[in-house]
Simulated scan of single mutants.
Amino acid sequence: MIAIVTDSTSDLTPEQQEQSSIVSVPLYVLFGGTMYRDGIDLSTADLFRGLKEGKKTPSTSQPSPAEFAAAYQKALESADEVLSVHISGLLSGTVGSARLAAQDFGGKVTVMDSHTTAMALGMQAIRASVRAREGAGMAQIVAELERVQAQMGLRFTVDTLDFLRMNGRIGGAAALLGGLLNIKPILGVVGGRVEAVGRVRGAKKAQAEVVQYVRDYVGKHGRTRAVFICTEGGEATLEDIRQAVAGSDIEDFGLFHFGAVIATHAGPGTYGVGLEPISV
């Protein structure tokens, strides 16, 4: 039997974790002098409310190797092996902590870099869990996830550039100019990094860009599993996108919210889609 471990940037709900027997190790958000566990102690609503009240911009950090070791030890009480799948190593040191912990388990723990984040990572963890329950071996599951990773897509846009500015992702002048011109960046995870893959002027054009991305992806990859992700304030736009692509050849995996770690960098009103081919 193979147990699946991931981290909180996967944005899996507690219900999904329980149903799929997935263990999620939380990252941390340091905010207002307090260290919070992502997905447990701090909601995105609390995060944005605190920022509006003038609290200092939060910082984020990965779990320690000891926390991963504890998760692996518990998982191995009822499993023979563990597959641990995590946020891209180019976005966080989380997968590095997991690999350090895995060294103490005599080859029973396999650690994978998902090369992505959010529910694009979550879908990989769920796929791995399903395949494990079906009786697939570790090599089979790892090979399938590697094929998925090569084809997976994640596109999103932000309502304001202020949060990217506050977290040092863009300069103040660029944020100011973008705000004045109503420029909306189209962002994607490319090669494990968040990159600007386009930009449009205005919210409607940004929405149309995401819709077209879904249609183009389905045209290229065929039957597609789609997950719709947002922070607080992005729900209405995301529902419009879901309706717009409803006639496409997709399996709608549902609407989810980014956790506090990702919301720290993205801000309110962020929305996007994660896509993977159902057959790989």
Rank of each mutant, 00 (worst) to 15 (best):
M1G: 13
T6G: 01
D7K: 13
S10W: 02
D11K: 15
T13A: 00
P14D: 03
P14M: 04
S20P: 10
V23F: 10
Y28P: 01
V29D: 09
G33W: 08
M35C: 08
M35L: 09
Y36V: 02
R37A: 09
L42D: 07
T44G: 05
D46S: 11
F48I: 02
G54I: 01
T57R: 03
P63V: 11
P65M: 11
A66H: 12
E67R: 11
A69P: 04
A69N: 08
Q73T: 15
S78K: 14
A79E: 01
V82H: 08
S84P: 00
S88L: 00
T94P: 07
S97H: 01
F105N: 05
F105V: 02
K108C: 06
T110C: 06
M112N: 12
S114R: 04
H115M: 09
H115T: 04
T116E: 09
T116P: 08
T117P: 04
A120N: 02
M123P: 07
S129D: 08
A132L: 13
A132M: 13
A132P: 12
R133G: 09
A136L: 14
A136R: 11
M138Y: 00
I141Q: 01
L145N: 00
E146D: 13
A150H: 08
M152N: 03
G153I: 01
L154K: 12
V158I: 01
D159N: 15
F163M: 05
F163S: 03
L164G: 02
R165T: 07
R165A: 04
R165K: 09
G168Q: 06
G168C: 03
I170W: 00
I170M: 01
I170H: 03
L176S: 10
L177G: 15
G178A: 10
G179K: 10
L181Y: 09
I183Q: 11
P185Q: 03
V189G: 12
V190I: 13
G191I: 05
R193L: 07
V197E: 14
V197W: 11
V200M: 15
A203I: 00
A203D: 15
K205H: 13
K205Q: 14
Q207I: 05
Q207A: 02
E209C: 08
V210P: 04
Y213E: 10
R215H: 05
V218E: 09
K220L: 12
G222V: 14
A226W: 04
V227M: 10
T231M: 10
E232V: 06
G233D: 14
G233S: 13
G234R: 13
G234Q: 12
T237L: 14
L238D: 10
D240P: 05
D240E: 15
I241L: 14
A244T: 15
A244S: 15
D249G: 00
D249C: 00
F253G: 11
L255V: 15
F256V: 15
G259H: 10
I262H: 04
A263L: 08
A266I: 00
T270P: 08
Y271I: 02
V273R: 05
I278V: 15
S279K: 13
